[in-house]
Design a protein around this nucleic acid. Structure first.
Lengths: 181, 181
DNA sequence: CGGCTCGGTTAACGATCGCTAACCTTGGCG
DNA sequence: CGCCAAGGTTAGCGATCGTTAACCGAGCCG
């Protein structure tokens, strides 16, 4: 594993535990086995670590969403694939999920705008499928429902009680039920 | 409105936007119309503001949960009342909801322990009702399901698109469906 | 009136932060 | 060998933070 990746992984864990502002560069360096300013050999600054982290996961989420939408035609099938993809991500990257909606506001302006755009596009994929299932669903209601489903699925990190497999089936079932499948 | 309460309300809003560590005492004072250290005439410190905020909302949530459990006998009815109570709280105190699961870790030790205890008791109320509905639900699964429902309901602040009434019916319906009512 | 409390001010202290500078060591290579 | 780039180190700078200290005006009350 490259040093860059080690820093990103460690930072995700620390940021998830104590928040972006609650982790110093010295903390982060120490957790990586080096001390303090060595981090600047790999990143332009503390902000840049957060930015790379959040932009890349937003891109990954959106790409998976697009793939799910392209792989099926029936909106129910697309939604099932979307839930699957999102649940898998949340289980595999619990720390990133926490950081994403906690420290979003600490991003530098450019990165924050990029993340915002990516997330909006991702929400639109969900909302479109929800609207395709029937005319009773307005676009805003669909967007709000998508956010609610994200909240449900993203609750994973807050309850580490179940083995991953059980958690996956529980969350998938609850999310699909909530979305009225 | 007392000065204390004004500080608490303003702090909830600011903490929700920028995080506990992202708001300085000077910021908080300025937002209240005074400047900086005047805050110490009302609170022992910045920590104490966060502590009072989170302890009081945890207590309020738990009290409402207990009332809901005492008001009905059928577990489905209790769950409906719990969802109602939680949705109402989330809609009325969006900022507090954000702060609670973002800045929980910034609490001083004593307050963090108290909040943890209160929240655990609250989760148990939900979990017990879920278990009472059938033997197929293990206790850990019930706890995880409760957390997932919280995540769903607490997504409110992230999507301010719908009027409160529409949001309330949407979230209530989704939460009950997710819980398998 | 005299004094006390309450709620505010500004100044300043010590700690910590992100970041830069200067230096050192190691490995690959012409 | 000589050199350079990569990836570390420590020292230290400037800014900002939470907090305290010292002071002050308004209002209440004996």
């Amino acid at each position: 594993m490259s040093r860059r990746q080690q820093i990103l992984d460690t930072a995700a864990e620390l940021f998830a535990q104590r928040g972006f502002h609650g982790v110093s560069v010295a903390d982060l360096g120490a957790a990586c086995g080096m001390s303090g300013p060595a981090l600047y050999k790999h990143f332009a600054g503390k902000d840049a670590v957060l930015a790379e982290m959040l932009v890349s996961i937003s891109r990954w989420l959106l790409d998976g969403g697009r793939a799910a939408a392209a792989a099926h035609t029936d909106p129910d099938d697309v939604l099932a694939a979307l839930v699957d993809h999102h649940v898998g991500f949340a289980l595999e990257h619990r720390a990133l999920i926490v950081v994403q909606d906690r420290d979003w506001s600490s991003l530098p302006d450019a990165a924050r705008e990029e993340v915002r755009t990516l997330q909006l596009a991702y929400v639109e994929i969900w909302a479109e499928q929800l609207c395709r299932r029937g005319p009773s669903m307005t676009r805003d209601r669909a967007r709000a429902a998508a956010h609610a489903a994200f909240g449900l699925i993203n609750s994973t990190p807050h309850s580490g009680l179940l083995p991953d497999d059980d958690m996956r089936t529980l969350l998938t079932g609850m999310a699909l039920a909530a979305l009225g499948g």
